[in-house]
Design a protein around this nucleic acid. Sequence first.
RNA 1: GAUUUCGUAGCUCAGCUGGUAGAGCAAUUCACUCUUAAUGAAUGGGUCGAGAGUUCGAUCCUCUCCGAAAUCACCA
Length: 504
Amino acid sequence: MSQHLSEQEIIRRDKLTQLEELGIDPYPPEMFEVNCNSLQILKEYNDTEKNFQHVSIAGRIMSINPKGKVTFAKIQDEKGKIQLYLSIDNLSPGEDKTLYEKVVLHLLDIGDIIGIKGEVFITRTGEITIRAKELKLLSKALRPLPVVKVKDGETFDAFTDPEQRFRQRYVDLVVNPQVRETFIKRTLMIKTIRDFLNDHGAMEVDTPVLQNIPGGAAARPFITHHNALDVPFYLRIANELYLKRLIVGGFDFVFEFSRNFRNEGMDRTHNPEFTVLEFYVAYKDYFWMMDFTEKMMEKMALALHGTTDVPMGDKVLSFKAPFKRVAIHDAIKEYTGFDVESMNETELLGVCKQLHIETDNSMGKGKLIDEIFGAKCEGNFIQPTFIIDYPVELSPLTKKHRTKAGLVERFELMINGKEIANAYTELNDPIDQRARFEEQTKLMERGDDEAMFIDNDFLRALEHGMPPTSGIGIGIDRLAMLMTNQASIQEVLLFPQMKPEKSE
RNA sequence: GAUUUCGUAGCUCAGCUGGUAGAGCAAUUCACUCUUAAUGAAUGGGUCGAGAGUUCGAUCCUCUCCGAAAUCACCA
């Protein structure tokens, strides 16, 4: 396999050889002990106390600025950047000037990872800096890093090409601090949610990714094959039915951050694999779930932003609980003027025609209502809002509404015009559940390729008795987009799905 | 899957009606013991996404392909 090398790569490989000739291992095996980081020094250094006089720090060279017998460089560690003062007097005090004159001036490059021992001081221009007494090369970089310069908050020559940023996320993370911030926030968001659930007595579980029957949602699955058993398996589209089996089994509050896979389009808000938090709580209903969810969201916003007001594009989203609750029929009435509550299928088709909404024969009453809501209402709910009480046809796993005929006890949480969460008072009546699955089979025969499969083992579980339960699924990636003010899902996935690169 | 736009040096970008390419940063060499988008001087670096066609001649025009972005469709 041959590799085309650029001029700069050839030069760096040549430097590698020169280093080896000087007896310097460019990739030394032994550990380098680090006793502080850039942020600690910048925050805690005190010039009168003269603390940090024996620092040992490691990082990647981000700029190097030789000035004859003195060189200034910046290294970046996990917490930020700090300046180094490298002088011939400090690094090569004896006869042998190799370390400074050869290594520092000629063999070190932007991108190299080095370890430094030295003392902290303040330069004439007032910058907290480490005066290096020892320098050790820890890893030589053979490819040039994009050089991004910043002056007075303005960024020059930023590394912005989305294709390169996503394919080479490692470069993106090194060079773009705001990208690091986004992922630190994402992780903190997930931690906050996990802690909140654990604090309320929930149990985190793992359920199968490879499933015989792709259940719990309406979506096209990825299909794979198990060789030893010679059977097809599906990558999960949801974990709902497994978590409910655990509720049957007597775990009363279970949750899982589930990586789901759906074989559908990719765009700004869809990646083929994505993360959904699902949790199920026994002896609760969807009213309880709304209360719990808004409290959790409020806590998460506070943890990430210190306030419940979260900026998103040119808007500010308020995560202050409680959130508004609007019945789906009321929402449709408000934004279209049509009262669809008691309409039959033909009347609904007429409404769709008037509203210029495309329909097809596979659509039943529920689906039509959903289409109207999706086309005319959804985008209007910017502030967190629970849309409640969906048509039964749309919700085969949801318990029928306690008072309203034809509806189910379900809510979706809309934020910034997008669905973020979907929750039910779960259907635990096995007879009704079997009937609902059979309805789905009819829809499938009618041409609805998203209708749900019958899962007989799940029905068997329900027949053993599932306590009244409420459950929810929360789109973690979309929530991360909201909490980090990103318009694209790729910005909150470390390695978003891309078409494969052409092999060389 | 459809439509539109885009792909030029390591990075960010110029490049007129078709005459085989430029800048800044990065790199190389030299000078400089407190610089900070360091500075000054010099130098090198390109299969213009890939392939085919039109043409005396293609980065530029046409077609096909590869990759990306935006919008739409499907979905969360």
